[in-house]
Design a protein around this nucleic acid. Structure first.
Lengths: 201, 201
DNA sequence: TCTTTGCAAACGAACGTTCATTCGCGAGTT
DNA sequence: AACTCGCGAATGAACGTTCGTTTGCAAAGA
């Protein structure tokens, strides 16, 4: 009975993530979710525990994913500026590939109930602190320009948030186009210096 | 009856904006709102029309504010790059001063009902197009580095979104510190070039 | 007196969830 | 081959609660 994965629960989770992104957690009813998976609301409870449990699983899965990405990058033996680049690329790719899931993770975590809410906040804080630590190293090494790593971090993070809301793959803009353009903006800025800038591709 | 402003309604609107930011529109009940203004839920309806009307007013007021800022900047006789700078500064200041209101404007507009939802989207699209137009002028003038103005625009916009969620004035970081740091990041980027960068202040 | 403001009570609708039941199906027994 | 037993999956009905809003009425201010 446990030899194979259960696709039904996964199916429900994915539809829930889509609805949570489109309408928000609170505005998504179990009857909405049931309709989108082709069931009656009551039938959902043969597969899941509760509405909030769905949100918990989505948030936890993504938190773990980001922390594991962080660990991989921390272990790399590369210049600090490249670590920042790697992290940003991972953020962008994850946002593009896992749009719905990451959106719930980003926007709807505040609707978590209390033991889980605190756990989530702590994991988030842990991740942020480790990112800030890398930024500080970059500043000391003279590779990164910033005075307040915290401001920079938040600005970097949220600069990617439009991806969750707006990006639709294949629609005129490819994933790699987006990735390169964003990185170029974040690393080299809007302002053209007097020299050309076509060599940083 | 209409000779003077009604402070009570304004009070309700402000409390609503705070709740919409903290809990989201859907998760905010009229009883929550009533408690926060010191009334019973039913008494609110002596001053307001409906829950959704509150959201409509918040969204409309902010949309108009941003459009009026845009018009002022468009009319300025300054280099394009400075127009972009002016707009970004206005975005940052508005976000810092009007945190709650702007948050509702940014995150909760999707809960608008249908005639207003389309109106709102159109105003938003108008604003974006005019911003993109300025960016394009900047690119042609060689003042702005970007290949896809749309990507840049969204990245700029959302890079400021953490302000709504995280910024608390007076808490270690001043408003002007934040403004300068963000502008420096967006205009000159993370990466230190090999030369010094202290001349762009 | 007329208007404004507040409140308690109540409204129908929708919420998340539970319940008893039923259906379909594979395994085990004759 | 026929029977039945267990069980996961689906259901409609209903639960208790909360939702946004309406109503009737009393107190206060003009």
């Amino acid at each position: 009975m446990e030899k194979a994965e259960k696709p039904k629960k996964q199916h429900i989770l994915e539809n829930a993530a889509v609805l949570f992104r489109d309408k928000g957690y609170s505005a998504t009813s179990m009857r909405d979710l049931a309709r989108s998976v082709g069931l009656q609301a009551s039938s959902l409870y043969n597969h899941i525990e509760s509405k909030e449990k769905l949100l918990q699983e989505i948030c936890l899965a993504n938190a773990l994913k980001f922390l594991s990405m962080m660990e991989k990058v921390e272990a790399m033996d590369i210049p600090v500026a490249e670590k920042v680049e790697q992290l940003l690329r991972l953020h962008i790719r994850t946002a593009i590939q896992d749009v719905t899931s990451v959106t719930s993770f980003n926007d709807e975590w505040r609707h978590l109930g209390e033991p889980y809410l605190s756990d989530f906040k702590e994991m988030r804080r842990d991740y942020e602190q480790r990112f800030i630590h890398i930024l500080r190293q970059g500043i000391e090494a003279g590779e990164i320009r910033a005075q307040e790593p915290q401001i920079v971090l938040y600005t970097l993070f949220s600069s990617l948030r439009w991806l969750y809301d707006w990006f639709q793959p294949g629609k005129r803009l490819s994933a790699t186009d987006v990735e390169e353009e964003i990185l170029n903006l974040l690393f080299y800025g809007l302002r053209c210096s007097s020299e050309l800038d076509s060599e940083n591709v």
